[in-house]
Amino acid sequence: MTATHWANIQERGTLAGMRAMVWIRRHLGRLPFRLVLGPVVLYYYLSHPLPRRASREYLARIWPRHAGHPPRHPRLLGLRHFMAFGQALMDKVDAWSGLPPAVCIAPEDHARLDTAIRGGRGGLILVSHLGNLEICSALGQRRPDFHVTQLMHTRNSRKFNRLLARSTGRQGPDIVEVSDISPATAMQLAARIQAGGFVVIAADRVPLGERGRIRRLPFLGRPAPFPEGPFRLAALLRCPVYTLSCLREGSAYRIAFSAFDDTTRLGRKAREAWYLEAMQRYVDWLAAQCRQHPLQWFNFFPFWHAHD
């Protein structure tokens, strides 16, 4: 395991800083928050060479493939990347404070989501660290019949969520840690799906200590390590599988929800082949979104070499 694994990147003092930012946002409002956010992001950008390098590598990979115009100030791109992250954090705080940013969902996506919820079969939802999924919690509040359990790998996000829950007095989604899925955890997840609920898991980060269950798949022109775990879980749970994303477009977030697969009838012998095929499909889905929204990629670690 290299020292640059994302789960090992310690963020000293970050929690105290975040606590201060949450306080400012909640008690002083949006404008003071924005004024403070700029210098904070700049400080973070200058004082954290590792995420900065990771960002630079990602930007160098994505930009030639990006469909839109070339950036006007390429030198500032890294800083803009970090600002997008700061913006995402602010939106998270807003969402959790009961002031969710505007969210839109296309009629097709809405229909698909509605069918999935009403179908009552529940399912597994694959997500990523692109965009701002927390904004979807606003969606959960609007649809009381949308029951979501979130699988998480580390305490990092958990810490942040606990902090938000404490300072906003609102309960976030159910969170289950997946450092080690035991038969008991699997049963718990299966029971939730059985009851028509949804289990959300990100499939773009390899958990710490994972060995052997990694596949290197071509991603933006170069093989990168991806975890097999979420796909093994999908096969195991024998349920519908979906993808969900929440990306900022201008001042609003757009939620996209699509059917990905259905593992109900996937036999054990067909699994190995399915893992590879499904993972590549997931990676392509991810890459397509990166091309559309390059600066909303929030994997600030050496993505392609995390398991060298």
Partner: peptide
């Protein structure tokens, strides 16, 4: 059957 989250027990 439902198991407790204790993986040692499982």
């Amino acid at each position: 059957i439902q198991l407790e989250a204790e993986s040692e027990e499982a």
